[in-house]
Design a binder for these strands. Structure first.
Length: 588
RNA sequence: GGGUCCGUAGCUCAGUUGGAUAGAGCACCUGGCUUCGAACCAGGUGGUCGGGGGUUCGAGUCCCUCCGGGCCCGCCA
């Protein structure tokens, strides 16, 4: 519709240019946009304001000239000039009725664009370390990422959803060691637990499973384990050095392959829990990608070799550095440490390269706001690898804070007293949690009000939208009870009987649904979908309660036409809720 | 200190890439259920868009500056 109006205005401008003999090789850009207020019609253009100088006319005069030359269109009901020189367009009723027809024809597909095969985007989100359960911070990333990918797909972009598993490196070693120490404790051989160890109860659960499966196989004497270790932080030493020594001791006493058994059990258990939780949260992935596989397949080495070959690596103080400053990063980055181990960033580089080697045309990273330092680094890596950094996109999601009884719920992972996503989900339900997480702009800090999300009351915006859907369903069940019928094609034929302003408003809103998807996809802003749904639900409630009209009237044609309208609204509500992973109930 | 995100009604937030008289929800006030579901609706009160400059036909939106807050700044992951 926008394009159509743009074309009309362009035609008019070309005519005006010819008649007024304006010397102007090209018509500068102007926009057609939705109006903010109903009194201004449906669409407006700033053409006269933008072009008045070029045409040497006053804005309002130019606007009038444009209207005088505007080609007729069956979609346009009325035009007007307003304010400093805006041209407003009011869409014709037949145009709105066409939307109604289209919604019913396309059903669940309404609003979707056909997939464009030339582009294939990989979107990575959550990617939490498998060193513990998901917490409420991950929940926002999960809800955002899942909604965004659904929306991108609806907008015609081929999407792959990926979770990067950090199953390699020191944090996992610390986890495995923590499990082993808890296991020793359960076996009656307690060893002092390190300050930097993982202290959550889930670690004990894994230890218990380990003991159950393997008995005393990993028992060692506490003296052997603790003897000669450097002092821990609370003993006046360094916690990192202490825990590293403890890991080395575990490897030494158990042997590498035995240590791996523990490591593997911890990884499988915790990653399994993460996957289960994501599924329960209605978040699906196409792939869980292992960091370890990058190292083991030689991908990390290859990526470093590529950077070296392209002349972006150098050695300093025994370490190998990537010259990130060449590409705008604030400092160069270590890729291979002095001790020969590769850094986390080395894996990142390899992973980035791998994504494009797998054929994706664009890589989107959904990261927590604390990772904003990554943007320059990752883009520099892309440039260094010879990739186009414009195809690497990082979307930062701000933090979520949890409020209970008006007070913030504190979270600390190492202390083990954090609120898990599972806790939240079981307390407020998947629907409310998913809705609340994407209700606000991702650039905004989110205050998650537990009571509000939990409340089965009018205050809860989730119910407001779901209620609109359920309300429509109940009209249809009432229909059967009253032994009335709904004939869609009869309703279609009688659609011109839908004349009430609130009926037209509903149609106008439904017409905006495809535009909403397009916009939310382009801006990576799922909350626009939520805003839209709230608006559509409000219009439905207003129609239902405030218009004074009844749907289930005796007159067949009118009833069928109105039922068609309700069916269409229900369909669009369902389509929208699906994109954000919230159910569309028939009853509440 | 440097970087980055944010500051809009008492509270939580929208604001269509610079448009017209800044909008919702909650809270507060008034009214509406013997009629398709009141988890709803109709209406009202409430603003120096953090402060100050600038850019232009036009600024909550863009630029500068100051104030206030979140987060980041390791050969950790």
């Amino acid at each position: 519709m926008k394009d159509h109006l743009h074309e009309l205005v362009m035609q008019a401008l070309l005519d005006v240019r010819r008649k007024q003999h304006v010397e102007l090789p090209e018509i500068p850009e102007f926009v057609i946009e939705r109006t903010r207020q109903k009194e201004h019609g449906d669409f407006a253009t700033n053409a006269a304001l933008v072009l008045c100088k070029a045409f040497g006319m006053k804005p309002r005069d130019l606007a009038q000239a444009v209207l005088d030359h505007l080609p007729p269109s069956r979609h346009v009901e009325a035009t007007s000039i307003a304010g400093p020189g805006f041209i407003n367009f009011t869409l014709s009723r037949s145009c709105l009725l066409g939307t109604l027809k289209r919604v019913l024809e396309r059903g669940a597909e309404y609003g979707q664009v056909e997939i464009d095969d030339n582009e294939h985007v990989t979107v990575e989100f959550v990617s939490a370390n498998p060193t513990g359960p998901l917490h409420v911070g991950h929940g926002r990333g999960a809800a955002f990422g899942a909604s965004l990918t659904n929306i991108l797909e609806a907008s015609g972009i081929k999407v792959q959803r990926e979770f990067y598993v950090n199953d390699y490196g020191r944090q996992m070693d610390i986890l495995a060691t923590s499990v082993w120490l808890r296991y020793l404790e359960l076996s009656g051989n307690p060893v002092r637990f390190p300050d930097n160890g993982y202290k959550g109860d889930y670690v004990v659960d894994v230890a218990r499973a380990l003991k159950h499966a393997h008995g005393d196989r990993f028992r060692r004497s506490p003296f052997e384990v603790a003897n000669g270790l450097p002092a821990d932080e609370s003993q006046g030493g360094d916690k990192e050095a202490h825990v590293d020594a403890l890991i080395a001791r575990a490897r030494e006493l158990l042997g590498a392959s035995e240590f791996d058994v523990i490591y593997k059990l911890a990884l499988d258990t915790l990653l399994g829990a993460i996957r289960d939780e994501l599924l329960a949260f209605n978040v699906r992935y196409d792939q869980f990608f292992s960091e370890r596989s990058l190292a083991e397949s030689g991908a990390v080495e290859r990526a470093i070799a590529r950077l070296t070959r392209l002349g972006h690596m150098y050695e300093k103080e025994g370490a190998k550095w990537f010259r990130a400053t060449t590409f705008g990063d604030e400092k160069d980055r270590v890729v291979v440490r002095e001790n020969g181990a590769t850094t986390y960033f080395a894996s990142d580089i390899a992973y980035l390269l791998n994504k494009f080697e797998r054929g994706y045309t664009r890589a989107v990273y959904v990261l927590g706001a604390d990772h904003h330092g990554y943007i320059a680094r990752l883009k520099a890596a892309a440039s260094g690898l010879g990739l186009n950094p414009a195809n690497v996109e990082i979307v930062l999601v701000q933090f979520a804070r949890l409020f209970k009884d008006g007070k913030e719920v504190a979270m600390g992972k190492r202390e083990g007293n954090f609120v898990t996503l599972k806790d939240l989900r079981t307390e407020v339900g998947t629907d409310a949690a998913r809705f609340f997480y994407v209700m606000r702009s991702h650039e905004q800090h989110l205050d998650f009000d537990l009571e509000l999300a939990k409340s089965q009351s009018r205050d809860n915006p989730v119910y407001y939208v779901q209620y609109a859907h359920a309300r429509i369903a109940s009209v249809f069940s009432k229909l059967a009870e009253q032994r009335q019928t709904h004939n869609r094609s009869a309703g279609e034929a009688a659609r011109t009987q839908l004349t009430h302003p609130q009926e037209l408003e509903l149609m106008g809103l439904m017409q905006r649904w495809p535009e909403t998807i397009e916009r939310a996809a382009a801006l990576r802003t799922p909350h626009l979908v939520v805003n839209y749904l709230r608006e559509l639900a409000a219009a439905l409630h207003g129609y239902y309660d405030g218009s004074g009209l009844k749907v289930l009237v005796d007159e067949d044609d009118l009833r069928n036409a109105r039922l068609n309208l309700l069916l269409a609204v229900q369909q669009v509500l369902a389509n929208g809720l699906k994109l954000i992973g919230v159910s569309a109930p028939e009853k509440m």
